[in-house]
Simulated scan of single mutants.
Amino acid sequence: MEKQSNKSAGQKEKLAVKVFRKVGSLMGKAQSVWAEWMNQRTAGLSRRTLYISLILFVAISIAYNSTVLVGGNSASMGFGSIEVPSKAPQPQIIDKAFQAEIKRVKRFTKFMDSLQGSPSGKKTYDSIMKARPGLLDSAKAMENWINNF
């Protein structure tokens, strides 16, 4: 079963590579066709006309983008004002689940601390620490993160 899933994953990867190569090839052809068309349209223009056209295009682009960035009269430019949405309240169910997880983490760290009080608890604590060495550190780090939240 494992070999078959590896084979199908390999086949999917090969198919994806073929698709991306084909799309890249088509994009390259489209760019070449566009460049040739533009070259034909501008072939009869003088060098001076091309420079003037370039300077006008750059000047208009800079003026428009500067106006947009500064926040000029957006109504005259053809688009409305952009409204920043108010912060949506967090759904109640997520808040309750988060509170339940906070309680679980705090209860766990309190339980682990209480295990060290008795000899039998100490054995349990040691076995947990041996099996999962970073567990208590992670729980305490999470508790600190929650307290700073």
Rank of each mutant, 00 (worst) to 15 (best):
T109N: 01
W145Y: 12
A139S: 01
M77F: 02
R41C: 12
K140D: 00
G10K: 06
S32A: 15
I55F: 09
S86G: 14
I82A: 10
E83R: 10
P89Y: 01
K122D: 10
L56V: 12
A30R: 02
I128V: 11
S61C: 07
Q31V: 10
A97V: 05
S8N: 10
V84C: 06
N148I: 06
M77T: 01
E83T: 08
R21A: 11
K22N: 09
V33I: 13
D113S: 11
W145T: 11
G24C: 04
F57P: 01
R132F: 15
F20Q: 14
W145E: 13
S114L: 08
R41K: 14
E2I: 09
A35Y: 02
K87D: 09
M142P: 07
R41S: 08
S5I: 15
V105D: 03
N6H: 11
I60K: 03
S138C: 08
S5G: 00
K22F: 04
F79L: 07
G24W: 00
L135N: 01
S5C: 08
A16V: 05
F108R: 05
I55Q: 11
A88S: 12
I55Y: 11
K122Q: 13
Q11G: 00
Q116E: 13
F149N: 09
G10T: 04
A63V: 12
V17S: 11
V17T: 09
W145I: 02
S114D: 15
V68P: 02
I82G: 03
F79D: 05
G121A: 00
A97Y: 08
K18L: 15
K110L: 12
M129G: 07
S120Y: 08
K123N: 08
G80F: 03
G28A: 14
I94E: 12
K18C: 05
I146S: 01
S8H: 07
A30H: 00
K96N: 09
K122H: 11
Q92V: 15
V17C: 04
I62S: 01
K140V: 05
K110H: 09
L26E: 13
S53N: 15
F79W: 05
S118P: 03
D95E: 12
A131C: 02
G24L: 03
N144P: 02
K3Q: 10
K122Y: 14
A97G: 01
R48H: 12
S5P: 00
I82R: 15
